[in-house]
Write a protein that binds this DNA or RNA. Sequence first.
DNA 1: GACTCGCTGCGTACGTTGTATCTGAATAGA
DNA 2: TCTATTCAGATACAACGTACGCAGCGAGTC
Lengths: 252, 252
Amino acid sequence: MAEQTGRREAGPAAGPDGEPVSLWERLERPPVARTVLTHEQIAAAAIEIADADGLAAVTIRGLAARLDAAPMALYRYVKGKDEVFELMVDAVVGAEPDLPPAATWREAMRAQAHRTRDTTLAHRWLIQVPPQARAALTPRRFAAIERSLAALDGLGLDADHRMAVFDTVTAYATGAAATETTMLQLMEGAGWSSGHELRTALGPQMRWLMSTGRYPAYQRTLTESRHIDDASWRFELGLECVLDGIACRLGI
Amino acid sequence: MAEQTGRREAGPAAGPDGEPVSLWERLERPPVARTVLTHEQIAAAAIEIADADGLAAVTIRGLAARLDAAPMALYRYVKGKDEVFELMVDAVVGAEPDLPPAATWREAMRAQAHRTRDTTLAHRWLIQVPPQARAALTPRRFAAIERSLAALDGLGLDADHRMAVFDTVTAYATGAAATETTMLQLMEGAGWSSGHELRTALGPQMRWLMSTGRYPAYQRTLTESRHIDDASWRFELGLECVLDGIACRLGI
DNA sequence: GACTCGCTGCGTACGTTGTATCTGAATAGA
DNA sequence: TCTATTCAGATACAACGTACGCAGCGAGTC
């Protein structure tokens, strides 16, 4: 029987129990396919795991299993687990839909902020990714920044102010999206499905804290608020404030 | 010889090697002090470790060692590692200096934003704390929110808008502080001590990306910017924009 | 064609982690 | 004095990331 190239016998010299494995047992074992992966496949598999079971479920072993590969085989493609995270973030950034060309800087910034929020909510594990992996300088991230900065050209702003505008909108969008996502996860973890339940079924600790009467302003705000469940409303109002402020202070 | 109350022999039935420990060896061992801890001590020790060696160095075992306690002894005070993180965050929030009473909502919000940034920069591990632990509802967190919300009273804003103002400023401050901290850590990890070095000694990947000419707007912004190393300048400019926008849109 | 050598993919194994479980000493009660 | 109860924390375990080293192939040499 001709040997298949590209494959070979799985031949560990010893089993997990330390007992040497006989030649015959080795011949009996199915040949293990040589792993040929791409970074895209790794990223996609990791994202599937994270979307389904959370970021903590993304382990080298689990990822390898999903890819039908040996755990150590992944290290041919990444230097360590951190790079898996980088791949995940880059893939998610790359999968974002292209923004339609914006007529004004304001539209461009608004669209970018909304996209940041959408992506964060679609992949809630993003906020748990170690910051250094999230901030990694990848081509797709560069491209995203480039597009936003390009939208700020021709407004008479110098480089410092262009950067400041971009950073300010980004800071607001990431901060707001992170807070919203965290709250969603907190509610899910507690088995609540909406903010309303959160306030009526109020967690014991929260109820106790409120009942002390030490937080009147907070309590009043919570009970009187009508848009409290409407995170979109709050995000958009805040965003318009930020954009207004930029327009106002920078005269654009 | 009278026995000392509150102490007892350390009496493991077997050593780490699995060998049973003889009575005589047990009698020889120094008595282990019974651990009496407080949550404050645990938080303080964990913060010391994290400040010195990063959040990853905060392990149950390491923490217990610093407290001269057995690893499992900590579980009398916390339900798991997550609660250690909650204690750390709460302690850091509680250690923030009281803000001087502010004459205007604007001053109050500005002071709060600056404090958020200062705290984040002082304890850079904060951005790595799992979001759910960072957002945990603790008395001190409530108190901080209460003070900010109280500053928004008497401006003719309804509850929704008071909450929106607070959330918007908070989102900007946390987002900006997180970005800044991440960049600092990235530079430290690469051995650069300033943003200037970062741009001149430009990491190989970044230089390559720039040299492709695919990111002209970004490149122009980086080379022309003069305040690029001045994170405080950018933070403050952005913050004033946010405050301007709130004032402008909400008419306060 | 036979033999050697270097390289590489990945199987094995190690050290470390968080924490469930269980032992056995200390204490209270009869 | 003896038994029941409690609970601190020692032990043990499963799962993790990944260093290490070896088997096997292909290239290079005679």
